[in-house]
Each structure stands twice: as C-alpha cells, then as structure tokens.
C-alpha cells in the first residue's frame, strides 16, 4: 500500500515536471532568435513567402496558443511532425522545397522511437562498462582507506574526471580504429560499433561511481554492525559482500539517478562524434536545423526517461534498505 501511494504521488509529480519541462523548452525555442521557416523555404525566398508559410504552420500565433495546440496533440500521443525530415528519410535541404504543412513529413514520435533503442543500448553498455571498471577499484579503495588502493582509486578518479570525453573519443578512434584497426568506430553496422563509444562514456561516469563507492564503503566498514559481524566470526568475504556492500549501495543507486543527466549529455556528444544513429545525434542535427518539433519531442522524452528512472532509483533504494524514506 505504501509503495502504491508512493508510486501515485511520484508519477503525479513526474507528470508535472514533464509539463514544466515542455513549457520551458517550447517557450525558449520560440523566444530565442532563429526562424525555422527561413531554413525551410531557403535563403532565396522572398519575405512574404516566409510569412505565408509561417502563418500556415501556425508559427505566428501567440506562444500560448501554439503551446495549447501542441499539448492537445501530445495528450493524444502525437508529438507533431518534423519540419525537415520527410517520411522517406532524406533530409530536405534549402534548395528543394518541401511543404512542411503537408503530411509527407516524418512524425516525431517515429523518429524518436526508431532511435531510442540504439541510445538505450549505448547507455546500457556504458553503464555496464563503468560498473565493471569502478567496482574493483572502488571496493579496494573503500576497504583499504589508508592503503595504496585508496590512493589508486583517488588517482583514477581524478584522471578520468579530467579527460574531456570528446577528446578521448578522438584519440581512441585514432589509435584503436585507424592505427591498430581493432574496433570499428564510425556509424553503426552491428554490435561491435557500440563498444568504443560505450567505453568512452564509461570513462566519463566511472569516477563518480568510484568516489561514491569508496566513501560510502569506507563509512560502512567503520560502523558497529561490521565489528559485530567480525565478532560473530563471519568470513571477511561474507562481511564485505553481503553486509557492507548492500549498505554502501544505497548512495550509489541514488547517485546513478542524479548522474543520469550527465550520462544523457555525454551520450549526445559521443553519438555525434561516432556518428552513432541514436537520439543524441538526432538532437544535434535537429538543433542545427531548428527542427522545433523534434527538439521538443526529444526534450520531453529525456525528461520522461529521467523522471521514470528516478522513480525506479528511489524504489530500488527502498528495496535495498527499507529504512530509506520514500
């Protein structure tokens, strides 16, 4: 019952957050300079054509009217249609004129759903790599607070957090793909194309996991129930893995919820560099092309993912440690 109540409350809050997010993005896009119509009709079109198309697309109505129209569509699961991408998949350029008011433009929801699995795959692999990297280092560092293991954890974490992700990506492409030809890097033609971008992302997330794991494990190991477990004669392995880690995991799970936005931001840049066909790449291209409906759709999707994962994170934290308040 408690959990149901919690879910209900959080989902309501989540919907509110998504609503505010969409409002912020929607207003921002229309307030900052840069007219999408100019790009659609091409630079040579006379101003009256621009105005005509803009009026037809509803871009000259007051923002609140436009937003109301957009929200009505959103409630019916319709995120609108891209300004730039026809259904066929080609990107319209300034030269050829495609009427964006017609129905031959790709629906935003399709564009997003098509790419979301790729991004989730990349994010999942990155998280897996990051956990594989940081668990040994973090646990060793947490158990030996004054030993070289802690210094190692500190060093790795300071180093990793200081490497700009896009630079690491380029250097790795140069060495692993171009020089040694070990891994493919650009585009996507199979699972092996995920590995390199996922590794770069993992390097970006790992320091946060290492830091949290080291501190929280170090704190837990000093608490009395660990001493008591030793007195009870439990093996060290048992103490660490089934008693200490479980308690140290709560801050870690919380951290993953907070760091999610770093991960999403990282995904965006990494996808762009590796030309990986995910949401991030779509975002960059859409922003450059001022494809408002796509940008809005992506912002709403990411904030929904963010809200959803944070609810899960809180639930998991509660399941691990029932003392946590939800």
């Amino acid at each position: 019952m408690l959990i149901l109540e919690f879910l209900g409350k959080r989902i309501a809050q989540g919907l509110l957050i998504i609503f505010i997010t969409s409002l912020i993005i929607f207003t921002l896009l229309r307030v900052v300079p840069g007219d999408p119509v100019r790009l659609i009709v091409g630079g040579m079109a006379p101003p009256d054509v621009v105005e005509k198309v803009a009026t037809k697309m509803g871009l000259r109505d007051p923002i609140i009217v436009q937003y109301g129209r957009y929200m009505r569509g959103l409630l019916q699961g319709d995120l609108g249609q891209s300004y730039l991408r026809p259904r066929s998949g080609m990107i319209a350029t300034g030269g050829q004129y495609i009427d964006p008011t017609k129905s031959d433009m790709a629906p935003v929801i399709d564009l997003i759903l098509e790419r979301l699995p790729f991004t989730l795959q990349l994010g999942g692999m990155a998280l897996l790599f990051a956990l594989l990297m940081s668990f040994p280092i973090g646990i060793a560092g947490g158990l030996h607070q004054h030993g070289w293991q802690n210094a190692l954890a500190f060093g790795v974490q300071s180093l990793f957090v200081s490497i700009p992700n896009f630079w690491l990506a380029i250097v790795l492409i140069l060495f692993l793909s171009v020089k040694l030809k070990l891994l493919p890097a650009l585009g996507y033609q199979g699972f092996s194309y995920v590995l390199l971008p996922a590794f770069v992302l993992a390097v970006e997330i790992a320091p946060f996991i290492i830091r949290t794991l080291t501190t929280s494990l170090g704190e837990v190991m000093q608490s009395t129930f660990i001493d008591e477990a030793r007195v009870r004669g439990l093996s060290r392995r048992r103490i660490v893995y089934s008693h200490a880690l479980r308690n140290a995991a709560v801050p870690l799970v919380n951290l993953l919820g907070i760091q999610l936005s770093t991960l999403i931001g990282g995904v965006l840049v990494i996808e762009y560099i590796f030309d990986y066909p995910g949401l991030g790449n779509l975002t960059v291209v859409s922003v450059v092309g001022r494809d408002f409906p796509v940008i809005q759709g992506i912002a709403i999707t990411t904030s929904a993912v963010f809200v959803f994962i944070n609810i899960i994170v809180d639930l998991v934290a509660y399941l691990i440690d029932p003392r946590v308040e939800i």
């Binding site: 957050i17 975002t283 001022r290």
Partner: peptide
C-alpha cells in the same frame, strides 16, 4: 523546487545547445 526539478530533468547540454544553436 518544482522548477528546479524540471530544470534538472532537462540535461544541461540539451538546453545549452538548444539556446546556443539558435542564437549567436
């Protein structure tokens, strides 16, 4: 705090490139 939450849920980089991409 609700505005803060909403802002937190938009990854900073998306917000940044959205604004900078369309303004100078």
């Amino acid at each position: 705090m609700r505005i803060t939450d909403a802002q937190l849920s938009i990854p900073m980089i998306i917000l940044a490139i959205t604004i900078l991409g369309v303004s100078r």
